[in-house]
Design a protein around this nucleic acid. Structure first.
Lengths: 217, 217
DNA sequence: TTTTTTATTTAGACAATAGTAAAATAATTC
DNA sequence: GAATTATTTTACTATTGTCTAAATAAAAAA
């Protein structure tokens, strides 16, 4: 089995690749470790044929590395949904539990919960769940903060990096699927007034930048 | 968090304590490692106050060590039952999966599945599940092989050490709860003829020694 | 009780994993 | 071309878990 650290590197590189070339420093920042440690690990990953690595040129996942990365992400997201839907975990706690278990559940376990959940496409935060063959649905990228008053939108995805923010989302029922009308938008990155579940609510810009929506159709 | 190895030692010591004083050699045999390795680990466990260890005098779990051991065993057994009942794992595969996950699931996760299962007292093999406060029901100790023809018994527990044997138990529906009548018993540890689910069946002595029963009442 | 055997511990070592700081070097930007 | 930034190299640390061989203690046998 790949060690937990190796799995975490693969996951991280995968996520960084989406947003451009992956440098040593970006990985180091993401994982809060020194650059030297990253260089060391990249060499190891390279000997394991999990990445293509050339000194000073950045790193890319190999076919095999990408396969593992997607498997881990799939495990994570299915676990999150599973913990929420079938175990009854509160939204802000699913991430931590999934982060631990994602490395240890068997393929068999994952494919069973996939089936029990009805082969879902998105996790509780709206992130797409890769299939077991590695296909991955498109993910919604436009934050609520970029829409204008008058528009009706549907929440597609919420950021899951901050447990406190997640708890707030959950409390406010600002979760994937929720329908929102934008009423007002204060200038200079000010708060946004929305109509949500029949109520008028005001959310800060910080929040609005972490809610990804699409136009209601 | 305690490392997986530490957790496995605690579990092993706990299980050995039931059958008498725990020596270095017994642990070494159980875990298939050298005695020297065990001595080393016992010293570490001792500095962690998980065991009382005196050179040449064997080892005992401390209050704290026993607490951890019971927690791991509880995790394992609840996971087994959960995997079988709610995830639909076949009996012979639950052990391996539970062995991995038992070290990584949170208390919260365990208490949720405990609740979902209706606070059960026994795992799918009939082993008692410790409560979260560490109480543990008595376990049935008399093997089928010690009963005589004519007796009606109920399976209380089956050995879970051998996955192949478990698959056989499952195929034959020789699982906890099953009612059996003993018809014949061949001498010199020969096979036993039983009536089970209306059919006459013959089980070998090896099997009969791994099925634990009590008189039907 | 002495001897032998067995159990256990000590000593010394290894390998894998994952990290660090400081110095050197390469790449990029000014 | 010089200065800055990024990256790598070097040399080290720490932990974890294991091993073999030699020494020693305890138990069993003579």
């Amino acid at each position: 089995m790949l060690s937990q650290a190796v799995q975490d590197y693969l996951k991280t590189i995968y996520k960084l690749e989406v947003k451009g070339p992956v440098s040593t420093t970006r990985i180091a920042k993401e994982l809060s470790i020194s650059g030297a440690s990253v260089t060391g690990m990249l060499k190891r990953l390279s000997t394991m044929s999990l990445v293509d690595y050339n000194s000073y040129k950045g790193v890319k996942l190999t076919e095999s590395g990408r396969k593992f990365a997607l498997e881990i992400i799939r495990n994570h997201r299915l676990l999150e949904l599973y913990l929420k839907e079938m175990i009854g975990f509160p939204l802000e706690k699913v991430h931590e539990e999934a982060c631990r278990l994602e490395h240890y559940v068997s393929e068999e376990f994952i494919s069973r919960i996939d089936e029990l959940l009805g082969f879902p496409h998105f996790d509780p935060h709206g992130h797409p769940i890769p299939t077991d063959s590695g296909d991955i649905p498109e993910l919604e990228k436009t934050p609520l903060s970029e829409f204008d008053p008058g528009e009706n939108v549907i929440i597609k995805r919420i950021a899951d990096t901050d447990a406190e923010m997640l708890a707030y989302f959950e409390k406010m029922k600002l979760v994937p699927g929720a329908k929102i009308k934008i009423l007002e938008k204060a200038p200079f990155n000010g708060p946004i007034t929305i109509e949500h579940l029949g109520n008028k609510e005001i959310v800060g810009n910080e929040i609005a930048r972490n809610i990804f929506v699409s136009v209601a159709g």
